[in-house]
Design a protein around this nucleic acid. Structure first.
Lengths: 239, 239
DNA sequence: AGGCAATATGACTTTCGAGTCAATCGAATT
DNA sequence: AATTCGATTGACTCGAAAGTCATATTGCCT
């Protein structure tokens, strides 16, 4: 984002390496940005797992092996961190929408692509969707921007659903209700998804999308896109 | 819940009526309970709308037209309020499960009944589902009980889905992922549902359930139970 | 080696809201 | 009207966490 990332000056590992996730850096003036990102990453993880208000910046600092004072060299305050994640979440959704629209197809196909892409991106940035639960803790100035982007996001989401209804690929539902329902499902992610766990981000994305698009009932199966599951016969437990 | 509500002694409006939602009461010893419920109701509304941590008990007291000190005559502390809503949410889910099981039918039918019933109950108790977002703020002793009930709830939910898969009424999905997805959708309710708004609680319950059971795509429509919507022809906007 | 600039520290101040309590109020009873 | 006792008040304490800053440390450069 800040012009050239100042490449070169690579083999230079004579730095201290004292701290767990700190200080294994490359160049000297990008350090600021990288450290800031480390703070954001750690904070985001904690926000997603425990919630914004249940996470103190002392906690975050301790997790990084630094002191809180140091942390404040890289972020202005706690609310700035929260706002950064709001921005990130909406940046990711913009990417997902661009991706889905580029795919083309029926409304249902576009929506499926958007959802899968968005969910997969979010599994890599759990702090982002965790942050969306905390609109009220934002700084008042930031809240307006967050509201603007949320409204744009919801409107785009509604529009895609309406497209799908118009072209017959989505059945007539209340688009707003569908958007809220889906957003809830997605924003809940950080409360149960653990990155190294049973399911990969990609699996979660595929399966959740499938669930949201096709529901649970049998007649619904695979109306959206091509088959994905390898063995699709019911693996019924002994009844 | 506490035996007879002591009917009679009705025309007795000589009470003070000073406060907006306070003090228009019937008998004299049930007052405690009613006032407590008023506190819980008001707090729950605020928790659902703004979140637990963004709601001060001063806010709640002011909304009721009383002082914070008075409020503490009816609840022990803020965490007790939160726990009360956890209990309420799980009580409602128990009722929903009992209702659904009593209906009988295939797994999908039972699940549909449970979901619709649960969602409708929750639209009347938004504080309850808002509270479920705040496990970490519970008193440590209460957290164990909350976790116990959450686990029981999730297990029952998973079991119903597995029943449905076994009897062929639900397609093979990852039951846990489905539960988490649904829980997210439901717990997000208080962030957008407004009681006197465009949709009634019953409408939200029906439509959300339909969405969760059948998804968005056309092939999915109405696989669960009998038809419900009166005019089910597509009301597509002018294409 | 020595000096310097950037970075880190931890003890400090500040803020906010939970929870308390002595004083006050008010309504039923005598 | 006076008494009484529970209900109510609002000013108080207290604790936790945000945010600050003078000092110490680090590592780079000559």
């Amino acid at each position: 984002m800040t012009g050239e990332p100042d490449r070169g000056r690579s083999a230079h590992s004579s730095r201290s390496l004292r701290l767990s996730r700190w200080n294994n850096l490359n160049t000297n003036e990008e350090i600021q940005r990288l450290k800031r990102e480390a703070v954001l990453r750690e904070a985001g993880q904690a926000f997603g797992r425990k919630g914004y208000h249940n996470t103190s910046l002392d906690d975050v600092a301790r997790a990084l092996g630094i002191s809180k004072g140091t942390l404040y060299n890289y972020v202005r305050d706690k609310q700035e961190i929260l706002f950064a994640f709001h921005q990130l979440a909406y940046d990711l959704s913009d990417r997902a929408f661009a991706f889905g629209r580029a795919q083309g197809g029926t409304g249902a196909e576009v929506l499926r692509a958007i959802l899968a892409h968005y969910i997969e991106l979010l599994t890599g940035e759990l702090g982002a969707c965790g942050a969306l639960m905390e609109v009220d803790a934002l700084r008042p100035e930031d809240r307006a921007e967050a509201a603007r982007r949320r409204n744009a996001f919801e409107a785009a989401f509604v529009a895609i659903i309406e497209d799908g209804i118009a072209d017959g690929s989505i059945r007539p539902v209340d688009p707003k209700l569908a958007v809220f329902t889906f957003m809830g499902a997605i924003n809940w992610l950080p409360r149960w998804y653990v990155p190294g766990g049973r399911l990969t981000g990609n699996e979660v994305a595929e399966q959740m999308t499938d669930l949201l698009m096709s529901g649970l009932t049998v007649a619904a199966a695979r109306a959206g896109k091509a088959a994905r599951l390898p063995g699709s016969s019911a693996r019924a437990p002994a009844a």
